[in-house]
């Protein structure tokens, strides 16, 4: 029973940890499939975490905070599209630029609004859903935020379906593989890239908002802690396929949840606790090394498209 409960809480924690990363990784998957590497992901997540917290605090409405964060994430995606698609700027530079800009702005606005406080500001976060409360093990696992349900049961399946079973998805993949061919076939390369970058930005911001609105109920400097970069690794691990990206997010989430529990056990081990903290990242690197060798990058990734 103890083991079953341990596994149940581990699974529940895995899903919670995986949620924000999966949201961002799905956004990144679409961007990269269309040929744009969005390194703005970390900054957009950070900005999403701040804006959602700030708006929720201001309006006393968590949903308003989430909505505004998603809208602003879309706008940051459009900004990325303007740089890389319209101006043809190097994708690494513009992506990192957006990360620096968004992080800087968010921190600045945070200082302006909450600078003088002795204790970090907080808001009452989203409640977890408690379905099937009278079934012991299952209820522990199902005890999740609504957003977690949405991402695993709605966003991932829809993403997969859009990618492989709709003409829009076909266009996205065509644009990322051979934009010249797509253009010749009458597909508007620029429009497709704008759309996926905007939607991708929205999903990244939603990932950030999940951390501040649900998991923490607060905003801190280290709230994202490299989750955006992990998401990029997961996209490669998942070979740009939403369902495999989901699998990757569960591996990372599992490793993260496990190390939390290992720390909490208070084992008297002759190794520093930072070793446990590093565990999920080490697992990610190993998974990436194994899967990444067979990765088939979208052929037009990183290449700006120009006509004539």
């Amino acid at each position: 029973m103890v083991v079953a409960l341990f596994i149940a809480t581990l699974t529940a924690a895995t899903l919670r940890v995986a949620t924000p990363i999966l949201l961002a990784a799905i956004g990144e998957t679409f961007s990269e499939r269309a040929g744009v590497l969005n390194l703005g992901i970390e900054g957009i997540m950070f900005f999403g975490a701040f804006v959602s917290f700030f708006v929720a605090d201001l309006t006393n409405s968590l949903w308003t905070g989430l909505l505004i964060a998603v809208v602003i994430g879309c706008l940051l995606g459009v900004l990325m599209a303007f740089f890389t698609v319209t101006l043809g700027v190097n994708q690494h530079v513009s992506g990192l630029g957006i990360t620096l800009l968004a992080s800087g702005l968010a921190l600045f606005a945070f200082r302006l609004n909450y600078g003088g406080r002795a204790t970090p500001p907080s808001i009452p976060p989203f409640e977890q859903l408690t379905p099937l409360a009278n079934i012991p093990i299952l209820s522990t696992i199902l005890n999740q935020y609504l957003l977690t349900y949405i991402v695993f049961l709605v966003i991932v399946p829809i993403s997969w379906w859009v990618m492989y079973r709709t003409s829009f998805g076909l266009k996205v993949r065509a644009v990322g593989e051979n934009p010249e061919a797509a253009d010749a076939a009458g597909i508007n390369v620029f429009r497709i890239r704008y759309i996926v970058l905007a939607v991708g930005g929205g999903l990244m911001a939603m990932g950030g908002a999940f951390l501040s609105l649900a998991q923490l109920g607060a905003f801190t400097h280290g709230i994202i802690a490299g989750r955006g970069w992990v998401a990029i690794a997961l996209v490669i691990f998942g070979n740009w396929n939403p369902s495999k990206v989901m699998l990757g997010s569960l591996i990372f989430g599992g490793a993260y949840a496990l190390q939390l529990r290992l720390q909490a056990m208070g084992l008297q081990l002759p190794i520093p606790y930072e070793t446990f903290l590093a565990l999920p990242y080490i697992v990610t690197i190993i998974a990436l090394v194994i899967a990444g060798r067979k990765a088939s990058y979208p052929a037009a990734l990183l290449k700006p498209y120009h006509r004539e």
Binding site: R165, G169, K171, A174, E177
Partner: peptide
């Protein structure tokens, strides 16, 4: 588009229906 099938290449950008 090399990773696409012949049919996908043929209909690419032509079919505007939502699902394929």
């Amino acid at each position: 588009v090399p990773p696409f099938s012949v049919a996908e290449n043929v209909i690419m950008g032509y079919r505007e229906s939502l699902s394929l």
